[in-house]
Design a protein around this nucleic acid. Sequence first.
RNA 1: GGGGAGUUUCCCGAGCGGUCAAAGGGGCUUGACUGUAAAUCAAGUGGCUCUGCCUUCGCAGGUUCGAAUCCUGCACUCCCCA
Length: 428
Amino acid sequence: MATDLLSDFEARGLVHQSTDAAALRAWLASPGRRVYAGFDPTADSLHVGHLVALVLLRRVAAAGHEPVALVGGATGMIGDPSGRSEERNLLSPTELAANVAAVERQIRGILESAGQRVHVVNNGDWMRGVGYLEFLRDVGKHVPLSQMIAKDSVKSRLERDGGLSYTEFSYMLLQAWDFVHLSDALDCRLQIGGSDQWGNITAGIDLGRRLRSRELHGITCPLLTKSDGTKMGKTASGAIWLDPKRTSPYRFYQYWINLDDDDAGRCLRRLTEASPQEWIALDDARTTNPAARETQKRLAEELTRLVHGESGLTAAQAATAIFFGAEIAGLDDAQLAEIFADVPSCEFPRSSLDGEGLALIDALVRTNLAATNSKARQTIQQGGAYVNNRRMSDVGHRLTPADLAGGSTLVLRSGKKSYAVVRFTPGA
RNA sequence: GGGGAGUUUCCCGAGCGGUCAAAGGGGCUUGACUGUAAAUCAAGUGGCUCUGCCUUCGCAGGUUCGAAUCCUGCACUCCCCA
């Protein structure tokens, strides 16, 4: 299975374009080859869109090769025009440095468990010392302008009103040089990227041939899109990030659980280590019993474990059980805080529970679960109000210490999915 | 410049003196069903100290026991003729 990486990629639908397949196969036949993919540090976290490349590198490792992850500390200074319709805003050097560090950490976290040596490199390290004139003489001289202009990424931008700046135009040279540099330093001869990277990758291959008479290889994988045409990893509320501070493990898990069947089947192949036998079994399960969502569960489990670890997966599953009706009991404040990390919270003085207690209607309004007292009353009457996931149908109910779930927290819910965490703090 | 029509609750749109918090549709909310989907069905949809009370029908006045409904003025929109 691990013998022919390229066939594995092809079977999983991961190959969009590739350079000479026979030559590539031959090169990959010996173990210990180094294969690289680049990551631009445009934010302090990677997102779901980067998973394809990360998982690909893991597969490279599983096949007995060494993954090389390049973080664009230098290229990030400039911004890749590929797949972009407008000029990028430049990041400040401090921001960039922070992003590079964060992204490097994430990459290591995901790749290092794959069982091979992992190289995480930053092109800032070799670009910083290179002078402009030197670069123009050593690299620029060998890249024909006609080819640069012919690249889709450049052409489409030139045809637009905004055009593109000389800076972004030069991006390609930097990435091309990265590839040549890595082939010098690590004997890395294969670069993998998204389909929008084809132009940049081939620029590197050309440069390698001109400067070193070396044969370099490239593979692009199709960009992940969902069957509804939207980009993978984007939701109405924004991107799905790998950083738990940006996207909680629960939401990450849910994202995969909620994929529709076609997308799930595709993602199973591209993003998980599932074997062909498993795909077939799961495809079958999906047609005979779609309700079980076995494919989605398999996806969600593997990816959540990969990104957030075993504890993240456990937390996400616990949260899932609760968000879908399980009564909230026997959890402490810390666990509640973790599960409901994405949920708006609201604080009340502890004393409001004393004596008469706090009217449920008030609590619903104060937590914005209901717009007015009337709406709150209606919600309760219609059976849409829950305290700790237990339906409350008494309009006059008052919250007392008996309603607390954790030591000082309780969870209100309106309808199926609007939650609010209420914390009662000692204060006045 | 002259003549006509209109402005209703989140949106569209009925209502033309009391039975109007205002038909109907859309949207939204809740419930049932379901695959945490879609469709479907049901209920709700001005506010409140809620079997009652208060505030809404372009704005300001007026007539009337009583006005979204009639009258006057103002603002805005649209149509037709010049």
